[in-house]
Lab assay of single mutants.
Amino acid sequence: GPGLTDLFKTEKAAVKKMAKAIMADPSKADDVYQKWADKGYTLTQLSDFLKSKTRGKYDRVYNGYMTYR
């Protein structure tokens, strides 16, 4: 089956995709945050998933999740 690194890459891609969806349409934020909360994502995990070469690119999404939880 898929190894943990593959799983991480898949999760990371999914999280980034959802983060971009929030940035494009902030009204989606609560739905996405709820999904992440259901998956039990911690802020540390989210921070790892949303690492970007562009500093602060996903800060709004991260901060939103922090206040959501």
Rank of each mutant, 00 (worst) to 15 (best):
D31M: 11
L50K: 01
R60L: 13
K9L: 08
A29L: 02
A19K: 00
A21S: 11
T44R: 14
T5R: 13
K17H: 07
K17D: 05
M66F: 08
W36C: 01
D6P: 12
E11D: 05
L50W: 02
L50Q: 01
D25W: 04
L46T: 02
V61K: 00
A29K: 04
L7H: 15
A24V: 10
D30Q: 12
S27A: 09
A14L: 14
A29E: 05
T10H: 11
T44M: 14
K28L: 14
T44P: 09
Q34H: 09
M18E: 14
D31H: 11
T42L: 03
L50V: 02
G1S: 12
A13K: 15
R69P: 02
T44I: 12
D38R: 10
D30W: 12
Y58A: 01
F49M: 09
Y68Q: 02
Q45R: 07
A29S: 08
G64P: 00
D38L: 10
D59S: 10
K35Q: 14
G1D: 11
Q34M: 09
M66E: 11
K16M: 09
Y62P: 00
P2E: 12
Y58D: 01
Y68E: 01
A19I: 03
M66W: 08
A29P: 01
M66A: 14
L4H: 13
G56R: 06
K39C: 11
P2Y: 04
K35R: 10
K20V: 06
K51L: 09
Y62E: 04
T44Y: 10
T10F: 09
D31S: 12
D25T: 04
R69K: 12
S47D: 06
T5E: 14
K17W: 08
K39F: 07
K17R: 13
F49Q: 01
K16R: 15
G56W: 05
D48V: 15
Q45G: 03
K17C: 12
Y68F: 12
V15P: 00
Y65S: 00
K35H: 10
K51N: 09
G64M: 03
R55L: 14
L7P: 13
Y33S: 01
M23H: 03
V61R: 00
V15K: 01
A21P: 01
K51M: 10
K12S: 13
Y41L: 10
V61E: 01
K35T: 12
D59K: 08
L50E: 01
Y33D: 00
D48E: 15
K57R: 07
M18V: 03
P2T: 11
A14N: 11
F8D: 09
K17Y: 08
Y41E: 00
F8N: 07
Y41V: 06
K57F: 10
Y58N: 02
A37Y: 14
G40C: 06
T5D: 14
M66L: 13
R55M: 10
A13F: 06
K20M: 10
A37L: 15
A19R: 01
K12C: 08
G64W: 03
